[in-house]
């Protein structure tokens, strides 16, 4: 037996450059020229999780993205990591989609493939970071889904044991396939791409599907299918006075202690207070 695994990846502007993102004062559009597009970082963990399961049980890994046409490059990178096939969902009609419309379109793309056992997503995308697409995709597909998965075992093909992160802790679950898992960074370390992988990827299939290739209702697509609408955009003004403290370390320390006091922190400067364990 073998597993049919789908991985959803999102091309995003490289988060290392987000400090450079700004809003054009005239057009009011977000300018991100010159920022390279990469696979959303945690989506590589999703690919890795899929490839590891394939190593254990055999089968096929299909990567799916809904994105503009040049995203074939990102799909090709996923194929070079070891995925078998890429699907690009691309159509003008998909543009302006919020999480509900995005997850709908992804679901319709996935339904066109052979029946899946597991869909992997990342827990959140670096740019929008709504962390919503995976749960909503699970709902459209009608399968059980979990978010923020940081550990996974597959004792049997059709039954997984997974752990999800919660605040200061974890929940443990049993989930049957078909299912969807959105993974956290801790789940694994994505493999590097080998030269062999790049060569092999050249001959792997990538298909592009538009809305006419899918069984979709137009009213669920793109901007029209999105219940949320965008209003204005702005950059928060976080500037503070940045007063520079000067002096040698001792002076700086004294100066800092005064600031802490002024900031509302009570401290006993004579050092007669007790603190910490074991003191």
């Amino acid at each position: 037996m073998a597993l049919n695994i789908v991985v959803c990846i999102k091309p995003v502007p490289d988060p290392a450059y987000y400090d450079k993102v700004s809003i054009d004062p005239v057009t009011k559009r977000i300018t991100r020229e010159g920022i390279p597009t990469i696979i959303n970082p945690v989506d590589k963990n999703a690919i890795e999780a899929a490839l590891q399961l394939k190593t254990t049980y055999g089968g096929k890994v299909t990567v799916v993205t809904m994105a503009p046409p040049n995203a074939t490059e990102n799909l090709r990178e996923a194929l070079a990591m070891g995925a078998d096939e890429g699907i690009l969902l691309s159509d003008r009609a998909f543009g302006g989609a919020d999480t509900l419309a995005t997850s709908y379109t992804l679901a319709k793309g996935i339904e066109k493939l052979d029946a899946f056992d597991i869909v992997f997503c990342g827990a959140e995308s670096a740019d929008g970071a709504t962390a919503q697409v995976s749960s909503q995709l699970g709902e459209w597909l009608g399968v059980p889904h979990l978010w923020n998965v940081f550990a996974m075992e597959a004792p049997e093909e059709k039954r997984l044991r997974v752990k999800t992160k919660i605040e200061n802790g974890a929940m443990e679950w049993e989930i049957k396939t078909p299912c969807l898992l959105a993974v956290a960074r801790e789940i694994n370390k994505p493999r590097f791409i080998s030269a062999m992988g790049i060569i092999k990827a050249k001959n792997k299939p990538i298909s592009t599907w538009g809305k006419n290739d899918l069984l979709v209702e137009d009213s669920h697509l793109g901007l029209d299918g999105s219940p949320t609408k965008a209003g204005g955009v702005f950059t928060p003004d976080l500037k503070r006075k940045g007063e520079v403290l000067k002096g040698d370390p001792e002076q700086i320390v004294e100066e800092l202690l005064q600031r802490l006091r002024a900031g509302g922190i009570s401290i006993d400067l004579d050092g007669s207070c007790e603190w910490g364990g074991g003191k």
């Binding site: 987000y18 993102v21 929008g128 219940p227 609408k229 965008a230 209003g231 955009v233 950059t235």
Partner: peptide, 16 residues
């Protein structure tokens, strides 16, 4: 917030 908080965008849900 988007882009790690660098940009803030207003979101509305007018009809649903």
């Amino acid at each position: 917030p988007s882009f790690g908080g660098k940009i803030l965008g207003e979101i509305l849900c007018p009809d649903n």
